[in-house]
């Protein structure tokens, strides 16, 4: 019997699996990016940190489609190898805040009262500072490098997830199904995590996707400022910084990493929009 139920259970899900187009295109972009990030050597024609003094600052040619930089390194290979670091930034800088923020938000939203008041002040404290300035300040104290950057982003970033989840849990807990859970004699733990959170987490997931794009921008900004990934590592921000002195003569050094950032950002945005549509609650 239970097997039969499960089988039927899958069917209606599949039937209405008319996936949003944004989700499909977003998944393709991010999927390809992940593939490149995991196996950059398969795609890159050259060693990303190998100097070639015979080919300094060469424009795009057949041998070097994206040109070379001031050390003769192949820009295409560097852009490809940068996927590894930048995708890592996207994930590592956001997973922690997402999980921690969601749990805190669920608690704050459900408990209300004092917890909510204290949380409100924390939010105020964090959002009064510009995010980037705060992160730069923390990294400056901890010292440059990717690890410290994750810590800095984590200290600040969870607040935004917590705020989203708390607001949504607050709405959901007033609906009758939450009361129904209480009357059924369920524990608050079960009501929050089994019932309210699945209905409250969608905005946080969508924001998470956007946040990954923002994290890459942030990582690149810090890389540009010399506070994130350290040269000679291939990272888009570092690359753009490398090219800044040659903008008028060798634009390709900065422009191609820039385009990569735009494409990744677009991919995450599409994915976020698509997920929002897919996870929309049907009433």
């Amino acid at each position: 019997m239970s097997v039969a139920v499960e089988k039927i259970g899958l069917y209606p899900r599949l039937r209405r699996l008319a996936l949003p187009r944004t989700l499909i295109s977003g998944t393709i972009i991010i999927g390809v990016s992940l593939l490149i990030a995991f196996f950059p050597a398969l795609f890159a024609p050259y060693d990303p940190i190998a100097f070639d003094y015979k080919a300094l600052l060469k424009g795009p040619t057949l041998a070097h489609p994206f040109g070379t930089d001031s050390f003769g390194r192949d820009v295409l290979s560097r852009v490809i190898h940068a996927y590894t670091i930048d995708m890592q930034i996207a994930v590592f800088a956001t997973v922690g805040p997402f999980i921690f923020g969601t749990i805190v938000g669920a608690y704050v939203g459900y408990a209300g009262g004092l917890a909510e008041a204290i949380f409100g002040r924390v939010v105020d404290a964090v959002i009064t500072f510009p995010f980037l300035v705060l992160v730069i300040a923390i990294v400056s104290v901890l010292g440059p490098g990717l690890g410290n950057m994750y810590v800095a982003v984590g200290i600040v970033g969870w607040v935004f997830y917590a705020r989203l989840v708390a607001a949504e849990v607050k709405v959901q807990k007033r609906l009758d199904y939450a009361d129904a859970g209480r009357v059924m004699g369920y524990t608050p733990m079960r009501i929050v995590f089994r019932h309210l959170l699945p209905n409250a987490i969608t905005p946080a997931i969508v924001y998470w996707m956007t946040d990954m794009a923002l994290a890459i921008l942030l990582g690149s900004s810090l890389g540009y400022l010399g506070l994130g990934a350290q040269p000679p590592a291939a990272e888009w921000g570092v690359q753009i910084a490398d090219g800044k002195n040659f903008m008028s003569t060798a634009w390709w050094i900065s422009v191609f990493p820039g385009i990569a950032i735009v494409i990744i950002g677009l991919g995450f945005s599409l994915l976020g929009d698509g997920l929002a549509q897919l996870l929309r609650v049907r009433r």
Binding site: D176, Y177, D179, A180, M184, P198, N199, R283
Partner: peptide, 18 residues
Amino acid sequence: NKRVQMIFQDPYGSLNPR
């Protein structure tokens, strides 16, 4: 609560949509 149950008014809000 196991012995005293309640049924709610709103057929749309009283069931967890997920």
